[in-house]
Design a protein around this nucleic acid. Structure first.
Lengths: 373, 373
DNA sequence: ATGAAAGCGCTAACAA
DNA sequence: TTGTTAGCGCTTTCAT
């Protein structure tokens, strides 16, 4: 709460110039031991904490890496307007109640972005970078991203969080790595997973092993992930000489299981397998199916995509395709580091294989093995 | 990669002064609409991204909150020396291999700190703060924490990560909130959980419901969490008029299950229940017990503490006490916000109840309900 | 080995 | 409404 001591204070107390103080911390061995000790002692006595802002300003580098994601815990309620930093919202002084925000719901945590973040955080630590986490909704993205971008030397962005032109601007001055967004000439680096191959392997399993013929793809195809997964699904059908649907059954949201199942039931169009675009949707659909008295996988097989923890907790456990999220997060930082140290290197794109995880919801017993794609 | 445009560039291009540019972003409605548009246009054209460092320096506030934790993914290998920012380690240019770091091990993620972090991140977003994540090992803590502290307006620290004097220094200039560390006159704010009450309830359940009489507490008691949990355990034994052990069975690490079980077996000292200080240890012990052909909970009941996701994935599912981690993380930020806006307020301490989660490893069937302590 | 001094990009009085 | 100007705390030549 008191005013923080600065180099000037330390210098004065140690009886040296501010340059010497700076040197003492930056290149300790270029300073005479006795003065070094004096400076260190003064710093300690004062409780000196160097300002990273000032240092960043002076050096032109911040030593931090940023990760920007949508906030998916957002309930749409009471957010403080961006930029209104330090302000208090209506409930600011009411203590937060335990369990008010479903503290034990492993369906909501960890999700894809959490695992990615874990990897990014780990690799940042290994390489000595600080990690800045930013979140936002599409609406305020320009403000927020700009706020984050101003604090870091590079940035990773999750899909569907920022307009391309904003990313373009930013990438002109620092490495920007897009996750789960296929590379196209946008000057950005990319880290992706083999969505198509993964979904192809999954669908092949349903067709070859379980002899299912009436499969339905459920989920959005207006995202690049969705498109690629749907393509993998169709490729498998084509290879098996099954009728190839032009369009999937689209879901309004990843928790729209109830409506989808109701619709299927109403139209008496329940297939043998519901191949979902992502785990969350699959889980929501399994809930709805169970509620409607339909056995999974007994009457309908259901599969997901991503490999979230929720899928192994679920009953039945979820057959899915797992993305190597920790590894992808780490790779993002590696690319950033590389780009920062090789300013003339062009953007980098890297794709990881996905892993088919066979569990119970496709009709297999727990004894089956995971299969690498 | 190019030099970033600054206020000066924008001002020049828009034909105004730098102050006007600054105003345009800070107080848009105090600027004539026409000039505002001109400035915005220039900024957009240039791809202007304001430097948060410069702003922070000038304003004396950063608008960011920091979270500091130990890095528990640390394998002890190849870390880049702190401060060597931007450098590349030996493997810097080798792509990271998928699955090299156990990408699908839900025993290692999410852990306690991950869930806390989730809550902190969420509340930071709600209140318009950026979140800076720092990690380190005890060794380099002074350097690292100082690096983080220099970038934020307040700081949360996980237990056993920093020496008290360092925290004391920092707390003299910004709010510092300690997690899972009981308050004592140190000038820090504290967010804790009722460890003793939680463990008491758990132990009561073992004694009253399962009629167990030979219970053993396993784990460290050299941490404040450990002490409080052991105290709760003993209180339950005392209330049941059972013999009260002076000391617990101490574990070298949270994955020392094999050694512990081997020791117990060698001494023929296997109790009816192993009450573990934390989930990770409990899970490790269950593994060892199973490997030794001992049925859990058939022959020995095993319980944990924390409420990690791994406990619900485990076979048998783990009876434990859950901390409201998301909520605790959120509360940390609320306290920080409050303190930042009420500089003369003293430190705040808040304790949350823990929740007894009865699952299978104590001998109960899955039909049992969670009980609030 | 140490000091003097010129910025780094932005904010906020204070003037105009 | 807009411009001038003095810092914010630190790094880094360049002298000494």
């Amino acid at each position: 709460v008191a005013k923080a001591p600065t180099v000037y204070d330390v210098a004065q107390r140690a009886g040296v110039s501010i340059a010497t103080v700076s040197f003492t911390f930056r290149r300790p061995n270029q300073v005479k031991p006795s003065t070094r000790e004096a400076v260190l002692a003064a710093a300690r006595a004062l409780g000196y904490v160097p300002s990273a802002n000032a240092r960043g300003l002076a050096r032109g580098r911040t030593g931090a890496f940023g990760l920007f994601a949508l906030n998916y815990l957002d309930t749409g309620a009471d957010q403080v307007p961006p930029g209104w930093v330090g302000s208090s919202d209506i409930h600011a002084d009411e203590p937060i109640e335990a369990n008010a925000y479903s503290d034990d719901d492993f369906r909501r945590f960890p999700l894809y972005v959490d695992e990615i973040q874990r990897g990014v955080g780990f690799e940042c630590w290994r390489r000595g970078y600080a990690l800045m986490i930013g979140a936002g909704s599409a609406a305020d993205s320009r403000t927020m991203i700009t706020d984050i971008a101003g604090r870091v030397d590079g940035l990773a962005v999750l899909p569907h969080t920022l307009p391309e032109d904003v990313l373009g601007d930013i990438s002109r001055r620092m490495p920007v790595i897009a996750l789960s967004e296929p590379p196209h000439r946008d000057g950005l680096s990319h880290v992706t997973v083999d969505n198509q191959g993964g979904m192809r392997a999954l669908t092949d399993h349903l067709i070859a092993h379980h002899r299912l013929r009436k499969l339905l793809f459920v989920g959005p195809v207006d995202t690049s992930d969705g498109k690629a997964r749907f393509a993998g699904f169709r490729a498998a059908l084509r290879a098996a000489a099954l009728p190839i649907p032009r369009r999937p059954l689209t879901a309004g949201s990843s928790t729209a299981g109830a409506e989808l199942v109701a619709g299927l039931l109403a139209r008496q169009a329940m297939p043998q397998a519901l191949v979902c675009e992502m785990d969350e949707l699959a889980l929501s659909i399994i809930d709805a199916l169970k509620a409607a008295g339909i056995a999974v996988p007994g009457q309908v097989a259901v599969t997901g995509f991503d490999g979230l923890a929720a899928g192994v907790i679920n009953v039945p456990t979820l057959t899915t395709v797992r993305q190597p999220m920790l590894t992808m997060g780490r790779e993002v930082v590696r690319i950033f580091d590389h780009l920062l140290n090789n300013p003339d290197a062009g953007p980098i794109a890297r794709q990881f294989p996905a892993q088919l995880i066979i569990r119970e919801s496709c009709g297999c017993g727990p004894e089956h093995q995971a299969v690498q794609v």
